[in-house]
Nucleic acid binder design. Structure first.
Length: 606
RNA sequence: GCCCCGGUAGUGUAGCGGCCUAUCAUGAAGCCCUGUCGAGGCUUCGACUCGGGUUCAAAUCCCGACCGGGGCGCCA
């Protein structure tokens, strides 16, 4: 093995009895029994018990050894040498793979000492995890914790599997620049001043999007990259200013080729990582259906509780609340909460009224006026308001929702967008409250059939639904005002209700790309100013191409059940984008600014 | 920019107007202990984020700042 050790701390077992071994690692726990000393020595592979026994130990210099051992503290880095031996009967530790043996210390050396640690590195009975700011400040200690170490290993393995698959499929990894051209499009850029070109700036890449398209023009055909991306927008639990995408692009393909390539990759990853068969192809859902049934463009389809619009059925029922909503152009949707899912039930097997009241309060907190409900009984629908709904309307509702006796029908009524959003939230809330996700596996789904454009409520103009490079379906954008109805060859990969990937076919025809830019409100001069290089590249024989970018941080965090992607990133930033471990960002010397021809306008307060 | 939640020994917590010179655990320092393993026993150390205010009395209530987290906006 290495020079400092003969074995690592997770490998010695009964098969090694009698061997002389040298271990190196951190002292995680030590126990002094008044002469007999125990040390749990841990490295990245595990931990092994080393014991010093003044009676049994055979050492060249017992006094010196005792002196060394008695001055060892927690998290000291030491090596110990000794013979692997059986533990005394009845003192084995079944929880530890090395728990049947111990190393009888003959020699020990302190490689480095450690100050008292600011928080526990060892696993604790109750969660004694400190606040996250402390974990980030001492990230190197946090990473020493077993959980964080295994998170990093998981991530590494996942990326490694993806790489292996893509390499076998003929992809090559190409690195694209980190110092790139700033653009008005998209998120806020991180800017880097140019020293050689004073007054000019690079931007850190928000994604390798345009570079990978130019790689396609360059004949690469199958590109991938584990790419760092930068966006200077405010953070969330699943958002960091710098994050990692598994980025891919392919030439001479159509959308189906890309989707099945991605599916194949995940199937391979699942097989390698979990030894599980991942069913492919992934289900697909159209954007408009997703919005109508799940109230979101990132649906979690692992449980039912889908919304059914009933606007058409109740439009003539003299129920004032619905009438008021409908007269303003609103909608009514319904969720059938199956009786079998309901936990808090009245003695007659129906939902507790208290539970319904809590849901009504919750609906109000979501910006809804309230929530209308009906119980399904063997005699039909029942509630305080069914009298406003003629028998044939009730019948139609039951048919559409397939309500069975014991079910509870929940109605949301209001402006379309509000209703769908609240309905989506209601689904998630019910699933959480009722534990519907317990024991559920994971589920990929493709979100497809998205428009090219959407209205910008601020300006009234059109903006890209995804980005301006999406190739229109059928290479056609309706003319004139109808262009807003144009559909794009784009797709999102949704995993358990979170968007973890997004991609599209790209415009390889420069005229089509110009047309899209034009619809987005750019005149020829602006196009030239912002995207001349792209348009020109497309004019030199750009092949049909498309691809996808997938969020590595988010996928890892979800697979590991982490609440935040920070737990799968070695050195993440806090909510204010500070790196607590090294204190970035900092002020810089005046001289450095001068060299860049920069003047700092921020207040000098210290 | 806005909204919500939180801030008590190194760490995690209890306390939520007077029982607080503040609980418990862990840690650190020291002592005891020859088979533990999240060892055990004894001793010691160590904290109410800051600034105003209300009150006879504030860790506790109010206001503001600061710090941290979650969210909205933002993220083509």
């Amino acid at each position: 093995m290495e020079m400092l050790r003969t074995h690592h701390c997770g490998e010695l077992t009964k098969g090694d009895l009698g061997k002389r071994a040298t271990l190196a690692g951190w002292v995680r726990f030590y126990r002094d029994h008044g002469g007999v000393l125990f040390y749990d020595i841990a490295d990245s592979h595990g931990s092994t018990q080393a014991v010093f026994d003044p009676v049994a130990t055979n050492s060249e210099d017992l006094d010196r050894l005792e002196k060394v051992l008695n001055n060892i503290g927690r998290e000291y880095v030491i090596t110990v040498t000794g013979v692997v031996r059986d533990r005394v009967e009845g003192t084995t530790d079944a929880r530890n793979p090395t728990g049947e043996i111990e190393v009888l210390i003959e020699d020990a050396k302190v490689l480095n000492r450690s100050k008292p640690i600011p928080f526990e590195v060892a696993e604790q009975k109750n969660s004694m995890l400190p606040g996250e700011d402390l974990r980030l400040k001492y990230r190197y200690l946090d990473l020493r914790r077993r959980e964080m170490g295994s998170n990093l290993r998981f991530r590494s393995k996942l990326i490694s599997c993806a790489r292996r698959y893509l390499e076998t499929q003929g992809f090559i990894e190409v690195e694209t620049p980190m110092l790139t051209r700033s653009s008005r499009e998209g998120a806020r850029d991180f800017l880097v001043p140019s020293r050689n070109m004073p007054g000019q700036f690079y931007a850190l890449p928000q994604s390798p999007q345009l570079y990978k398209q130019m790689l396609m023009v360059g004949g690469v055909e199958r590109y991938y990259q584990v790419a760092r991306c930068f966006r200077d927008e405010d953070s969330r639990a699943d958002r960091q200013p710098e994050f990692t995408q598994l980025d891919m692009e392919m030439s001479f393909v159509e959308m189906e080729d890309i989707l099945s390539m991605v599916e194949g990759m995940y199937a391979y990853v699942w097989k390698e990582m979990f030894d599980e068969h991942l069913p492919t192809p992934f289900p697909r859902i159209e954007l408009k259906d997703s919005l109508a049934r799940y109230g979101t463009d990132a649906p979690d389809v692992r449980f039912g509780l889908e919304m059914e619009e009933v606007t058409d059925l109740v439009k003539d029922a003299p129920y004032e609340i619905f009438q008021r909503v409908l007269s303003k152009g609103g909608m009514v949707t319904c969720i059938d909460l199956k009786g079998s899912l309901i936990k808090e039930q009245d003695t007659d097997g129906s939902v507790g009224r208290k539970q319904v009241d809590r849901l009504i309060d919750w609906a109000k907190s979501q910006g809804m006026g309230g929530l209308t409900w009906m119980r399904m009984t063997p005699d039909g629908l029942s509630s305080n308001i069914v009298k406003y709904f003629p028998e044939e309307v009730r019948q139609a509702i039951v048919e559409r929702t397939d309500a069975q006796p014991g079910d509870l029908l929940l109605y949301l009524a209001g402006p379309r967008e509000t209703v769908l959003r609240a309905g989506g939230q209601l689904r998630l809330k019910l699933a959480k409250d009722l534990g519907l996700l317990e024991g559920k596996g994971h589920q990929f789904v493709w979100l497809v059939s998205c428009p090219l454009f959407q209205k910008d409520p601020a300006t009234g103009g059109l903006t890209s639904f995804h980005h301006p490079f999406v190739r229109p379906v059928g290479d056609v954008i309706p003319e004139g005002k109808d262009c807003a109805n144009g559909m794009g060859h784009s797709y999102d990969l949704v995993f358990d209700g979170s968007e973890i990937g997004s991609g599209s076919m790209r415009n390889h025809d420069p005229e089509m790309q110009r047309k899209v830019f034009g619809i987005l409100g750019m005149d020829e001069a602006t196009m030239q100013k912002e995207f001349d290089f792209l348009l020109e590249a497309l004019e030199f024989g750009a092949p049909p191409h498309g691809g996808v970018g997938m969020g590595v941080d988010r996928l890892c965090a979800m697979l590991l059940g982490c609440e935040s992607i920070r737990d799968v990133i070695a050195f993440p930033k806090n909510k204010k984008f500070q790196s607590l471990v090294d204190g970035a960002p900092t002020k810089v010397e005046e001289a450095k600014l001068s060299e860049l021809q920069l003047l700092c306008l921020a207040d000098e307060d210290d």
